[in-house]
Design a protein around this nucleic acid. Structure first.
Lengths: 102, 102
DNA sequence: AAACATATATAAGATATCCTATATTATGAT
DNA sequence: ATCATAATATAGGATATCTTATATATGTTT
């Protein structure tokens, strides 16, 4: 993890993956890079692929093999999950953001 | 937890407690109520007090007994932690918010 | 074809969060 | 004083995240 200041914010990885996939289909490597760019720390393969597998098992994403890559797409169920999770996030922490962003 | 849609967002509790205390000193019950109001689900005593203890051990908050209540205050170290964590949160998830809030 | 690089996958385990259930302490009411 | 209530605390455990390390598969280069 990154911030060791009393709160590690774990549990956000799957959500962030889903959110990225709601914008655009992409493979695992690209997902890791996108997250790395935002967090300042690129998740290891052993972190990202188990998370993707979990999302697949839950029916929130699908994976389509293309050469040596697997391109992941969000499903309808996944889109609904993103909507719900985003609403929860905004309801719970919105004020922290609106304050922190200015 | 609340959202069972592929991401449980655990790890945010301590941060949210710290953030609340950065606004105003308060006791454990009030903290639980404030979080409950935002999340839609009030944390149980067995959740909130161990978290507060952890924050105390880490030197991020202090507790002052007042009758049967304990009033918690954020420390200087705690303020720095909130600043750092908020910056990380905004950097990592800011776009999700700015989009989700409109 | 052989060697190398890239992308994905899995196993095993350390760590942390959060919960249920129960106990303790202090206040208020009768 | 006794009883009920409110606030805090702790023990023990279930669950999930994330990591390290290793393995597999595909593609590229020589």
């Amino acid at each position: 993890m990154q911030t060791r200041t009393g709160c590690d914010m774990r549990g956000m990885l799957s959500f962030q993956i889903l959110w990225l996939l709601s914008k655009e289909k992409m493979n695992g490597e690209k997902i890791a890079e996108e997250i790395g760019r935002r967090r300042g720390d690129k998740p290891k393969p052993g972190t990202i692929y188990p998370a993707l597998k979990e999302l697949k098992v839950s029916g929130l994403v699908t994976g389509k093999k293309d050469g040596r890559e697997v391109v992941y797409s969000i499903t309808g169920k996944g889109k609904a999950a993103v909507r719900e999770a985003t609403a929860y996030l905004c309801r719970s922490f919105g004020e922290i953001f609106t304050e922190g962003m200015k």
